[in-house]
Write a protein that binds this DNA or RNA. Sequence first.
DNA 1: CACAGTTAGGCGAACGTTCGCTCTCGCTGG
DNA 2: CCAGCGAGAGCGAACGTTCGCCTAACTGTG
Lengths: 332, 332
Amino acid sequence: MYVSLKDVAARSGVSFQTASKVLNGNSGVVSPSTRERILRAAADLGYVPNAMARGLVRQASVTIGVLADDFSDLAVSQFVLAAQRAAASRGHGALISSVHADVDADLAVRKLLEYRVDGILVAAPSLEDDPRLGAALRGPLPVVSINRIHGRRVPVVGSDHAVTGTLAAEHLLGLGHRRIGTVTGPRRRQVVQRRMHGFREALRAAGEPLPEQRVVEADWSFESGRAAAHQLLDTDPTVTAVFAHNDVIAVGALKALHERGLRLPDNCSVVGCDDLSFAEYLVPPLTTVRIPFQETGERAATLLLDRIGGRQIRARDLLPVELVVRASTSSP
Amino acid sequence: MYVSLKDVAARSGVSFQTASKVLNGNSGVVSPSTRERILRAAADLGYVPNAMARGLVRQASVTIGVLADDFSDLAVSQFVLAAQRAAASRGHGALISSVHADVDADLAVRKLLEYRVDGILVAAPSLEDDPRLGAALRGPLPVVSINRIHGRRVPVVGSDHAVTGTLAAEHLLGLGHRRIGTVTGPRRRQVVQRRMHGFREALRAAGEPLPEQRVVEADWSFESGRAAAHQLLDTDPTVTAVFAHNDVIAVGALKALHERGLRLPDNCSVVGCDDLSFAEYLVPPLTTVRIPFQETGERAATLLLDRIGGRQIRARDLLPVELVVRASTSSP
DNA sequence: CACAGTTAGGCGAACGTTCGCTCTCGCTGG
DNA sequence: CCAGCGAGAGCGAACGTTCGCCTAACTGTG
């Protein structure tokens, strides 16, 4: 079905090894005339090299595996896409494998190993510090992740979460807010802890330390964000601004405020996190801290390929975040 | 680095071919005792079969290629994820390859061919009827697509666009609207033509044929939707309802209506298309026709694997759409 | 006790490459 | 005039499998 080197060689009257030299190899010298002949034959026949055979002898598949947990999540899908493109631009294929309730990490990683991927990119925030994922990722294979991996020294690329919290706090403080609440993601998650750290410190520095009752936990979802925002305002109705740990929570908060008859941003300001595509379409458009998912994907892939290429890479790589001011925040 | 069949065989005192039989093969008989011994050795050594070697001799990579144009688009990424999972659940890997401005379809397909994928799934709406994509997809490899492919008889799986238009029209008519406008996607796209067909017919059947000036074209984007909605209402301010060809356009329309000081849904109703995750978070929550992207991905992958398995599949497979009524529509 | 049948496992070949080594020229310089 | 050299091409082995066929040993039968 496919034409092989032997076919090309037969047509141009050389051995298949010689054909290999001109078509794929980097070794050996051939005369311009036979080179030309082989090239012609390959083009005529429509030769497409067989990556499996090549991978077998070279002991490298020129492929990376991408392990993602849920890329109907915009953040994850942006990351994966960017990573795939970066890998492709350096000649590597991307084999994707998703982990979810039905299929555990072990199986997903095993699949990637069967294909002998040259390295693995992990984008599985929900599996942060999951021991099973850590166990599955044992072994000498290069790995780069956007979340911590349990028990392994895996290089992490991401954004600076503390700064994220700081930016949100300083923006709201700068507008004159004093009683600021926050709806966080799950507390056990590192990203949440670090964002809280930056957020807290900024408030304290401004002489407005954050009381515990102005912190409510949500699980990243719209519904949880809505409920948490209600709870926050039930507990302390004097709050004039809310920092939500992602845009979806922020939308839930928007909804809750709306349900309470509060007008935005006059009665209450909201700042989100992520800058997903819909953030600017909301009414009012959402002020948010932009997390550079695409750049993260690109960077992660680049680092992984560098490590595969034998270079040493640093254990932690943080990309800058940026406050995007829109209409959901104003002076109190 | 990896342990091979030979290593396992050496440890259990059999030939590597015998090890192959018990570990991967389906042929041949081995005694329970040696079978046990080999299994133990494999587990002890951490044997992981080499898919490249297997693929080489079996002449099948047990992998499908997924060709997508832009999966930062929620619709596409949902499709790809679902397809990957369906493929995985039937033991196939998914190699993704994206086409965009920088890399043309030819190159992307060629990469997939190098890896000898067993079939290709195409999710490239923006390349609908693109002759270069059609040319790149020549050859006997099984292909299933969610958009038409130029010049090839590629099985298409998707949703019933005409019904989509009909559902939107009938919903609005049922609420009592008579002067209904629409903001479409690019007119050359088949999906737009078919949705318009269903939409138009429903209006005509209700005795309210659609005048041309109530049809404005957009390019799927928020900004274009917003501009188009303004244009629509400038031309005919008596319009009381708008059918948008996707949710992003719908959000743009929401914005435009808001800018004109119209209250939703009292002054103007909007129905969208897709039911992306944010549709229910909007203020007001968006009434929309749900397009089953995930089911489409699943179905597409299943069909492709069936074809790879030698079964005959039908040329066209339409999944049902469904109206999701929320708060952005009401009686005029 | 010879012979056929069965069962467990070995063996060789093939899949399509890459890569290093060898061979064969024709040419050059001492 | 011939040793030596270098360029061009061939050759063999290896990568890790699968698969069909072969063989040795054992079982039971007449």
